[in-house]
Design a protein around this nucleic acid. Structure first.
Lengths: 216, 216
DNA sequence: GGGCGAGAAACCTAAGTATGATTCCCCGGT
DNA sequence: ACCGGGGAATCATACTTAGGTTTCTCGCCC
């Protein structure tokens, strides 16, 4: 073992993990070696259940799955993850797949569907693409989550005002619409800006867009 | 022929066309009948070149392609269309395809990849999905195009001011940044609002987002 | 009592409009 | 080559409206 080994991905300069799910240990080992050779961290699983029951680290990652697995198949696992709202990119491998399978996998959002035997480089390319996509998705998600947290701290009235402000109404119009004095709208509005951490109205409008606020 | 035949899709209530590209005329006729039976308009082509050289109508539509075609293959055509920035949804059919082909097609954005023989209903489902997606894409595109047209009428200065306004700067800050008096900024700003047809600052910010305006 | 909503008064800043004027530059006509 | 017009940018003055903050006061309800 290399004492200088790092948990960080030397290729991308950021932490990332590849989850390998295959019932054949020799295949898992071979893939693990391949990924480790380019500085990627690897976790191995022998079945879909094993992966579903483990707690996945919160870093950019991807799944490398055999289609045929004991218990849940790779495609079943893909469906389960989607149902659980887990959007980790998936790369499928198969020795005996068919076209409908590959189409189903790709429609389900898979990054790639490789037929064995495949070239190591093809697998690496797909994994790199997958991890890059996951990193981007995580960043986007993080931004929205942060906004939503701030949004949670708003009172009902403040949310109402936010929606109308984002819709472009003037304070007096908002006041008429919700039946309060204009000064009250100003106070709510000021609180909304502070709570949301918006530095300008433009900022606030963009935030409202991101968390999908619209007037009913 | 039904004298009450309409150019409008009876199923979706909106005009739409299916382009069928296959070198086998009997296949084309069969597909055309299938699509017409549910009220879809159909145009047939014997080769990729035929389709590329014809002017496609500007309505929600999709492509049904055989992978194997004389001249450009279905996959080549997909690539050509993407290069030409034509984003019409594609459904592939094949009698002798393989997994890498289907994966390539799906990665290229295909809606589906059907192996012959397929059930009529599967084809219809895919076509309906494709047309729905195209209609949505067209609507989104139309909105952005309209905005861009308005944006084109702005002078350089006005665009500069728009970018800074959308970034949330105050008039005085914008004035300092571009080295003019605050009153001048106000004038530009007013013109921007008028030319863009924005009814409020919130409106303008959303427009700027849509056409991808950001401060350098 | 404390959080929340509402609001009055006072005050200040920011934004928007109207009018008029100046300068620069390009374009077309003579 | 000379002249006039028009668009664009700039700015001043003068006002009006909108937005925002602070302080204090109520009323409500858990």
């Amino acid at each position: 073992m290399n004492p200088f080994a790092s948990p960080h991905d030397l290729t991308t300069g950021q932490e990332s993990v590849v989850f390998v799910v295959d019932d054949d240990e020799s295949v898992r080992r071979a893939l693990a070696n391949l990924f480790q050779s380019v500085g990627l961290e690897v976790q191995e699983f022998g079945s879909a259940a094993e992966l579903l029951h483990s707690k996945l680290p919160d870093v950019a990652s991807c799944l490398v799955l055999d289609i045929r697995l004991p218990g849940l198949s790779g495609l079943d696992l893909q469906l389960e993850l989607a149902r659980a709202d887990v959007h980790i990119p998936i790369i499928f491998m198969t020795g005996h797949g068919d076209i409908p399978m590959s189409v189903r996998a790709m429609k389900g959002g898979a990054i790639d569907f490789l037929t064995k035997p495949f070239r190591d480089q093809d697998m690496l390319d797909s994994v790199m693409t997958a991890i890059k996509r996951d990193r981007e998705r995580r960043e986007a998600e993080k931004a929205v989550t942060g906004l939503r947290e701030h949004f949670e701290t708003l009172t009902d009235r403040e949310r109402e005002v936010l929606a109308l402000v984002a819709a472009g109404l003037m304070n007096k119009q908002i006041a008429a619409q919700i039946g309060v004095a204009e000064i009250t709208v100003k106070i709510h509005r000021g609180r909304v800006m502070k709570k949301m951490g918006a530095k300008s109205l433009a900022d606030l409008v963009r935030m409202a867009e991101m968390i999908g606020i619209r007037r009913r």
